[in-house]
């Protein structure tokens, strides 16, 4: 497989789907890291994975049920008032046990489970691109409103309560946005790769960047560079895309100790 093959119609849609994810995931990842809720990505991706297997069990619309499962998990976390990684760790364990038990009792569940581990980007289509395009519009549209509120709530945790907003809307909006993005990512590149693209680029960018929007931009640049390399390597050597993405981003993470402190 050579570089021009990327532009083959068969690979173009999956390539664009992955590219959009490489932009959107570190954007939410930077804010998730800011809130020290980085386990969110794994918890919500696993909840989405449980939704995918559930869809196979009931023969329902896969993407829709995955989105619903992740969104429900985010909503439950928000309504129950659980903050931090503990809520996401519970979500991860519930998602994992539900997904595996359903898979064990379903005809297609096992195949889907494997796909969710390895990623199935090459099987994504125009509907995935449309959904990701809509999420991109919402994410970039909301960013100027959402980012200052998330930063304010992080550094001045009593600000909203002191001004009469015990449950500010931006918290729920952000949780649902993370859930939807992670659900789409888990169904395209797999659970662990989705977690890696949320976690690793901001993890590197936080060490090097100065300024919040520069951090976001650097995270996206690292993620896109890693994705381009991973996509070509996976095509060229016929490897599952998920583990290759994780490997490339881990390799990029080796530069972290060289940041000036």
């Amino acid at each position: 497989m050579t570089f021009p093959d990327v532009w083959d119609a068969m690979f173009l849609l999956p390539f664009l789907n992955g590219l959009l994810l490489a932009i959107l995931l570190p954007l939410v990842g930077a804010h998730v890291r800011l809130r020290e809720e980085w386990l969110a990505s794994l918890g919500l991706a696993q909840a989405a994975a449980a939704g995918v297997v559930l869809a196979a069990f009931w023969v329902g619309p896969v993407a829709l049920i995955a989105l619903a499962a992740a969104a429900l998990a985010a909503l439950a976390k928000s309504l129950l008032g659980h903050k931090g990684n503990e809520a996401y760790a519970l979500m991860l364990l519930v998602g994992w046990t539900v997904a595996l038990r359903l898979a064990a009792n379903s005809a297609h569940g096992e195949d889907l489970s494997r796909a969710l581990v390895q990623g199935q980007l090459y099987f994504t289509d125009a509907s995935h691109l449309q959904a990701l395009g809509a999420v991109a519009l919402v994410q970039f549209g909301l960013l100027p409103w959402l980012a200052p509120r998330l930063l304010l709530a992080r550094f001045f945790p009593d600000h909203f309560a002191a001004n009469g907003q015990q449950n500010p809307r931006h918290e729920l909006v952000f949780d649902v946005l993370v859930a939807i993005t992670l659900a789409l990512a888990a169904t395209a590149i797999g659970v662990m790769a989705a977690f890696a693209v949320v976690f690793l680029p901001p993890w590197i960018a936080f060490r090097f960047a100065r300024g919040w929007f520069r951090t976001i931009a650097l995270g996206i640049a690292i993620s896109v560079a890693g994705y381009l390399v991973a996509f070509l390597v996976a095509l060229r050597f016929d490897q599952p895309i998920g583990p290759v993405i994780v490997g490339v981003l881990l390799a990029l993470g080796l530069v972290r100790p060289f940041a000036q402190r």
Binding site: F155, F156, H159, R207, W212, R214
Partner: peptide, 15 residues
Amino acid sequence: LAEMPVTGREFLRLT
């Protein structure tokens, strides 16, 4: 936070 890439000016802008 142990790693916080926000600048002092951005911090003041929040309020």
